[in-house]
Design a protein around this nucleic acid. Structure first.
Length: 454
RNA sequence: GACCCUAUCGUCUAGCGGUUAGGACACUGCCCUUUCACGGCAGGUGCACGGGUUCGAUUCCCGUUAGGGUCGCCA
């Protein structure tokens, strides 16, 4: 029997980071054993249902690179899909559910109750085999002792989650259900349903949850809960995936940065950890940085240009060589792409934007003596015909010696003159990239700025 | 209230009866340094608690505590 797994999110308007990891673990397991990865949209709750909400899920999974073998191709419930077990939206499968409910009623497993349909659950403890948690023996709770039966069709005719989830897993021939541990206790219901249908239940693997860094439940409103925040926040998807792999699973061998294909080769269900993990943004940022440093400059440029575009800075009018050289000076310095504008926007703006609050030191930058030194520096730069980082460093140090001051007294104002900021790429390298014309122009402009302030 | 899962540095984890309890992130100090960084060196912090089992428990069992989950005509 071929292995089939599925990710079955509800379109709530956002993709929870924990949901993303559940999708990832399903995908990893599918790729590991050459199985089929099915995407099914659980949109039975019409109230909070929209194509946009489905698109968020599809876009999130695509961004992470978790392609599904079967499932919807667009966010439209009645739209196109791939796979032979559709429809892949529960809202389109009502006829199937209706037939299955009748089957349960006919067999005596379900009965009408005040307009709704309830499933007849027995009162025995249930053994839940689980490849991650182990065998779980679940007793009835006090409320279930009173009435173990549960509603499978609401009085308005809508089937509920437990019912449709089981029917779909059955109809779609799902062999392994890898899902969040929040479903573990309810699995007793699902097992009973499978038995009532005379079907063999799938293998279950309940994976631990992702908590906030303080150990509390990570809800919709919590920082980092939505995958969108990483898409917007300047992270490379491969870094997010790498981090997620390390939450609840370990490659052993003290390894942190791992190519996905290696994870696919190693990944298996029994090795999944059984305890919840807390989401540590600092670790993700470090991993992201590892990826930005080592990714090809071509890929880095795509993210960098996107980040600049978001703040209205276009690189279009600059030569590819200039852009490339500019981005090379920041590639190993930024940890997230949202910092690209702060580090590189000055390369692509005709006017330097001064961040006064962040300038190195007003006291030393905006003085007449600084202006005089910069003029000397400018004149020395004029006659530097090489104009690369090495020659510029030599020239600057020469001028500093001439003035009898430490290089820093020229370096800081010059950086401010070039970038408008106290942080950024290596000074000599950014000068080389900017080129003599821009450098001389910006020195002049800054000298004027000093004079205007005196 | 009942039921279920879990418990190694601040965080993610390695460990599966005998280890100086390892790694990574984060943090602290020093060095280097043109900013911010990087890098180098050094450093601290951990087996939740109490009982067993055993020659010996981080490791196995029980209990306690704590955290998380579930018990819906939500998914």
């Amino acid at each position: 029997m071929s292995v089939r797994v599925r990710f079955a999110p509800s379109p709530t308007g956002y993709l929870h980071i924990g949901g993303a990891r559940t999708a990832l673990f399903n995908w990893l397991y599918a790729r590991h054993c050459g199985a089929t990865f099915v995407l099914r949209i659980e949109d039975t709750d019409a109230a909070r249902n929209s194509q946009e909400a489905v698109d968020v899920i599809l876009n999130g999974l695509r961004w992470l690179g978790l392609e599904w073998d079967e499932g919807p191709l667009t966010g439209a419930a009645s739209g196109p899909s791939k796979g032979e077990f559709g429809p892949y939206f529960q809202s389109q499968r009502m006829a199937i559910y209706k037939k299955r409910v009748q089957e349960l009623i006919d067999k005596g497993y379900a009965y009408e109750h005040e307009g709704a349909v309830k499933f007849r659950m027995d009162r025995e403890p249930v053994m839940i085999p689980d490849v991650v948690v182990g065998n779980v023996r679940r007793e009835l709770t006090d409320r279930e002792q009173l009435d173990p039966d549960f509603v499978i069709v609401r009085s308005d005719g809508q089937p509920v989650f437990h019912l449709v989830n089981v029917i779909d897993d059955l109809e779609m021939k799902i062999t392994h259900v890898i899902r969040g541990e929040d479903h573990l206790a309810n699995t007793a219901k699902h097992l009973a349903l499978f038995r009532a249908f005379g079907a063999e239940p799938p293998t279950y693997g309940h994976i631990p949850l992702i908590l906030n860094i303080d150990g509390t439940k990570m809800g919709k409103r919590d920082v980092g809960a939505s995958l969108q925040s990483y898409q917007d926040g300047g992270y490379a998807p491969e870094a997010v995936v790498n981090y997620l792999c390390l939450l609840g699973w370990s490659p052993k061998g003290n390894r942190e940065i791992l190519p996905l294909d290696e994870v696919v080769a190693m990944f298996d269900l029994p090795q999944i950890l059984r305890h919840n993990a807390r989401f540590d943004l600092a670790k993700l940022q470090w991993i992201n940085w590892e990826y930005t440093k080592s990714m090809p400059i071509e890929r880095f440029e795509i993210f960098a240009k996107e980040a600049l575009a978001k703040v209205g800075v276009s690189t279009a009018e600059f030569s590819p060589e200039y852009s490339r050289a500019a981005f090379l000076t920041i590639k190993e310095k930024i940890k997230q792409f949202i910092y690209v504008p702060a580090f590189a926007a000055f390369y692509f703006r005709s006017e330097v934007v001064f961040d006064d609050s962040a300038s190195s030191s007003e006291a030393t930058d905006y003085t007449a003596i600084t202006g005089d030194r910069l003029v000397k520096l400018r004149d020395a730069f004029v006659s530097d015909t090489v104009f690369n980082s090495d020659s510029l460093a030599a020239v600057l140090k020469g001028v500093a010696a001439e003035c009898g001051v430490k290089a820093g007294l020229l370096v800081h104002p010059l950086r401010l003159a070039m970038t408008g900021s106290a942080i950024g790429p290596s000074l000599y390298h950014l000068l080389e990239v900017l080129g003599k014309d821009r450098v001389l122009l910006r020195i002049n402009q800054f000298v004027n700025r000093i004079e205007a302030r005196l």
